[in-house]
Nucleic acid binder design. Structure first.
Lengths: 232, 232
DNA sequence: ACAAAAGTGTTTGGAATACACCCATGC
DNA sequence: GCATGGGTGTATTCCAAACACTTTTGT
């Protein structure tokens, strides 16, 4: 412990940011967890997070955490809830509240970050019991993601371009935990007008070759101005 | 200033909760503002809010603020964003972050709270320039409310029961800032099955008498289990 | 009588759904 | 040749949207 240099008339909570990093492995949604190297909860898995610095916004803090673990600077990132249970974490003699974000990244672009901490991807249904109240944070993050995807096609943030229609379908199925009819999914997506179909195709192992698509952000912005909702 | 009794190794931000209280006057959405009696921004209007106590959750804090201003204990209340710009408010030498909630109340049930602070309802389009970053908070709150209402019929929280179909329609129009066809709105609402039509009618001044409805929470819970979305 | 708002039902078009067969590839 | 998954179109159903007239009451 260093010296206690900061003095207040009233007690102040600690403020941290935590970042739930979602990736997609082609079949399932995954989250990136790090193994805690220090007490409390040493050896258990948790989301990347840390104390908010005095000169940064929570968003900047969450981006910093994301960068440290993945090397990514520009992923989609979204605040979804602030957790304030007085009992959720007591360190330093003060309670700790956390401003939680979720990030959507392309797994293939993730480098092991600089951080010495051991990081590992876990499919959502294989996530172990987590440190602090991070089980709850994960539930809320998943819920927020599902809700958000009805308003914005944020799924694209999880897929490296170009992608096949089947990959996109698997992604939506993984996020929403449902099954779609291939033809209907394809029709609906194309009708939205936010996909570019490329000339090239991809050779799939043991399968027919598949068309490739990219996301068309211009059309999407236009669509969003008018206010739309993706229906599934 | 009292003495500075609380000491930390690192600087901690102050944490407040603010509560955007929405009401409905039959035509427009309103928000309840209080006039600040102290610096900074003395004399300007702001949302009720205050420092988070060490033993309470942010939700409890927001409910406390709500109660102090309205006398209401059990209104619908929902966290929607945490504002963390380091420049948004600097008092006490520390930055202040705020966990913001919105509450939906029945205006007719609101008593002037105990609080000495001057409180007043403002229609959304008549809200003056607010203290701190509360203009931004209001924009975000309105946005969050509009989004939420697609998933849950939270509009009912704003209407005293029983209500007429026209009142309900005016409410939705005010929240979403659109106009609906009376017949279509009525059909859609009734088809959801979450309204009870009462025997009684209400005599409207200069008008035909109108049927009265109440909200049916059982049917609503059932519906919500299955996962639905209100489409407008 | 007339102004103001409430109640009510039908038609039409578009979207969502359900559904089945052929194709290309690797083994 | 067969197993696997990819591509494609149609028929039906349902829901959303558009639309107008009558009733009641107060002035």
């Amino acid at each position: 412990m260093g010296e206690l240099k900061y003095h207040y008339e009233y007690p102040h909570p600690c403020v941290t940011t935590d970042c739930v990093i979602f990736g997609f492995d082609g079949t399932r949604l995954n989250v990136l967890l790090i193994e805690r190297g220090v007490e409390p909860f040493k050896g258990q898995w948790a989301f990347p997070g840390g104390f908010l610095k005095m000169a940064e916004t929570a968003l900047e803090g969450a981006k910093r955490e994301l960068f440290e673990e993945t090397g990514l600077k520009d992923a989609y990132i979204q605040q979804f809830h602030t957790f304030t249970d007085p009992q959720r974490d007591i360190r330093d003699g003060a309670r700790v509240i956390t401003i939680a974000y979720y990030a959507l990244v392309k797994k293939s672009e993730v480098m092991g970050g600089d951080d010495a901490a051991k990081a590992q991807w876990f499919p959502l249904d294989k996530v172990p019991s987590l440190a602090f109240d991070h089980d709850k944070i994960l539930r809320e993050a998943t819920h927020a993601l599902r809700r958000q995807i009805h308003f914005e096609p944020i799924g694209f943030e999880l897929l490296p371009e170009p992608f096949t229609m089947t990959e996109l379908q698997r992604l939506y199925e993984a996020i929403l935990n449902v099954k779609f009819d291939r033809r209907n999914f394809c029709n609906k997506m194309l009708k939205l007008g936010i996909l570019n179909q490329l000339e090239e195709t991809r050779l799939m192992p043991n399968k027919k070759e598949a068309f490739l698509y990219t996301f068309n952000p211009e059309n999407y912005s236009e669509l969003k101005e008018k206010g739309f909702r993706l229906e599934f």
